[in-house]
Amino acid sequence: MRTTVGSLLVLLLGMVLDLHPRPAAAAEEGLVARGKAVYEVSCVICHGPKGDGKGLTGVIHRAQAHGVVIQLYPRDFTAGMFKFRTTPTGYLPTDDDLLHTITEGIPRSGMPSHQDVALADRQAVIAYIKTFSKRWQEEEAGTPVKIGKVPTYVSTAESVKRGKELYKKVGCFQCHGLSGKGDGPSSDTLKDAWGDKILPFDFTSGTLKMGSGAVDIYRTFVTGLDGTPMPSYEESLDEQQRWDIVSYCLDLMQQWKPQVVQQ
């Protein structure tokens, strides 16, 4: 009897274990298939059929600094490495991070907004993008870094002053330049994880790719931009120091906004 009951339990358990994954896998397969269909309509032209960023468009974006033209390519999904995340450096982005980039696009790059694509399709394409790199099977996405409210001292004269000191001390100027123009001493030598030449941000030039607000800049300091020379300062700076540099970055951007012409 015991054996029978035991066998039954084993059987039931086996059935549960065996049967349960089946609908999930099917659903996953359906999602991936749907994502593939969407990808092939909206994404393949730049990111390529293999997800390696080698679509027909080729160079999607060209930047220029100091008379040198730099070519930028669409994201290569096979590396499983993403610049714009809310997760700590080295971690995979969350689905919300990817959804944000897909939905809003990336200003100053060729990545357009896809708010005209149905939400379910955007979610499906995320599932498909994850098939390009093994990282998604081997690792969990990170947990978003918590960022509190913007402290009241941000953008005060004292904070800007402290930020300016830190900007020099920490070495931000090495890449971004003393005047924030992206022309620091190492600016010409920078390369990304793919070995392509990359430009540090010029604070005098306009919007940041993931937003130009205080929180957006702070987030970059705690997540780093993976795959680029921009590191995370989560360990090396304390919270106030990071906010002080935010103040200084905002100041650099503000300084270069010309007087708005009276209309």
């Binding site: 390696d52 027909l56 080729g58 160079v59 290569d76 590396a79 390369k191 793919w194 070995g195 392509d196």
Partner: peptide
Amino acid sequence: MSSDWLSKGLRSWRAVVITAVT
């Protein structure tokens, strides 16, 4: 991540043509 496999990666002939034009 080597830059070689990426930069030297094979592209389809169409991609090559388009890239050349670009």
